[in-house]
Computed example of a mutant assay.
Amino acid sequence: MTYDNTCKYLAENYPADFARWLLASDTSDIEVLKTELNLEPIRADSLTFLQISNQILHLEFQTSPKSTPPLDFRMLDYYTRLKRQYWWDIEQVLIFLQATSSEIVFNTQYVDKKTRHEYRVIRLWEEDPTPLLANPALLPLATLARTDSPQDLLEQVAAAVDMIESREERQNISACVQVLAGLRFPKNLMRQLFREEIMQESVIYQDILQKGKEQGKKQEALELILRLLTRRFGVIESEVQQQIRSLSITQLEELAEALLDFSNPSDLVNYLGNIS
């Protein structure tokens, strides 16, 4: 199950709640930007862009601080591309879900020789759970917040979920809670507090299952293509491999057919360049 994708589901279905939490904004005039930022591939399952008046709230959720390219550079990269496309104010918030002592999660800026770019970082395990518990849309994040008694916190979340009036919303929020709580709590405890059938009936659970199947299919296609290319041309440069990994399932299938006509590595490079 993808933790990042669960957070993306929450942010895109409850944008006003995230704007209120992160920007102290009470406006309901919010649009989820389905923007396409070309060039280096974007991990669509971890990113959400919200338009609030003439401002963009860029949310990125991460379970692991490891990233290629590094997260600080990615934040700069996304900022410049968003700025070029919209020319609005941009608030960037990088939210780490799982507790870690890595120095990366304490970094709030990209620094180069003559370049400095700052962004906000939230480490959920340090956050006060009170405002998260008060908002149904943020209950899944509350499971990962600061506490001296994790089990008591999870019981509070479970009680708050039970109070959600809409059955459909209760199902979906419960599913999101159980997905994110899996980063912190054992399954047997969650089974005691949440009904499994409620999770299985939810939209987000079905969506996660479907995405899991798609990702498995893509991984199989990717591994096959890389094996074929390596067998044919030897070692494939890491930059070229990264381009291939960014392709969709459909693009990978098309590449699988096209590579039969490649005579040398430059044919592959040219093919990928034309896709870009």
Rank of each mutant, 00 (worst) to 15 (best):
R116F: 13
V121P: 11
R123H: 09
E127Q: 15
D128S: 13
D128G: 03
P129N: 07
L133K: 05
N135S: 12
A137L: 02
L139G: 02
A142L: 00
T143P: 07
L144N: 02
A145M: 06
A145R: 03
R146Q: 15
R146H: 11
D148Y: 12
P150V: 08
P150E: 08
P150S: 04
Q151C: 01
L153M: 05
L154S: 09
L154H: 03
L154A: 07
L154Q: 01
E155A: 12
A158D: 12
A159K: 10
A160E: 13
D162M: 06
M163C: 11
E165Y: 05
S166G: 11
R167K: 11
E168K: 04
I173P: 04
A175D: 01
V177D: 09
Q178K: 15
R184L: 10
F185V: 08
N188A: 07
N188Q: 07
M190E: 15
M190W: 01
R191Q: 13
R191S: 04
Q192K: 14
R195V: 09
E196W: 14
E196K: 09
V203C: 02
V203H: 12
I204N: 04
Y205P: 02
Q206V: 02
Q206F: 01
D207S: 12
D207T: 11
I208D: 00
I208F: 10
L209D: 12
Q210W: 05
K213I: 15
Q215F: 00
K218D: 06
Q219F: 08
